[in-house]
Amino acid sequence: MKNENLYNYILGIADNSLILGQRMGELCGHGPTLETDIACTNISLDLFGQVRSYFQYAAKIAGDGRTEDDIAMLRKEREYKNVLLAEQPNTNFAYTIARHFLFDVYHFSFLNELQKSSDLTLSAIANKCIKEVSYHERFSSDWVKRLGDGTEESNQKMQEAINDLWTYTDELFHQTEADKVMVEDGVGVDVTKLKDNYYKSVGELLNKARLNTPESKWFQKGGKIGIHTEHLGYLLADLQYMQRTYPNMEW
């Protein structure tokens, strides 16, 4: 492939939306209120819409006839490049909210930079996505505040979820080889530069929500190079089921 770094770079961005969208989709009809059901489905829809824009572009770059669905559904587990945070399960509503909050703050600042990309397609996609993601961030931040401040039980549950997922935050700011090349070319975002602001905003919001910022300095990594947690395999089994069971068909 002529433009393999760009292709991999796009997958690195899009896989986060794909896996998070899939996780949010699991909740449809099972949320704590009808309004949250609608919001979660809506977020899932936004994320899959983003995935389609990215993968259609990636398919064009690959130029060998592969489609957005081939890219989304026919890779092996080790070929998915999403961060570990995205694949963490919906253990309870606090985990769902914590996962989104920790990702949304990053996602917003990432897209904000990606809008300046020298690649006009990526910049246009970022420009469209950032409007959606600013809503996602508001939704998850508001819920962090509600659950943190609400009752003793909700405060404990929210704190536990933040503590457990904290270990996956540092990976957001790691760079793969493709990332580095793309940054040099003016296409990609230098995520290392987003880190300080990220921890500052997250810390401020947690504080507002009567939650403690975890002090642990032990972080997990690997998602970006395809080494995932055990959760991903099951998620992919669902995601890929139809394409694997009925190969080469149109739906």
Binding site: Q22, G25, E26, C28, G29, H30, L34, D37, I38, T41, N42, S44, L45, F48, G49, V51, R52, F55, E68, D69, A72, M73, L235, D238, L239, Y241, M242, Q243, Y246, M249, W251
Partner: peptide, 30 residues
């Protein structure tokens, strides 16, 4: 009615179908 269709959201066969199904189930919630 959201439940029987929600049952196929994670397994929809293509991204296009997944998005359409999500939108449909969301309409039902609405």
């Amino acid at each position: 009615g959201m439940l029987p269709e929600g049952n196929w959201i994670t397994r929809a066969p293509s991204l296009r179908r997944k998005v359409a199904l999500l939108a449909k189930v969301q309409d039902e919630a609405g």
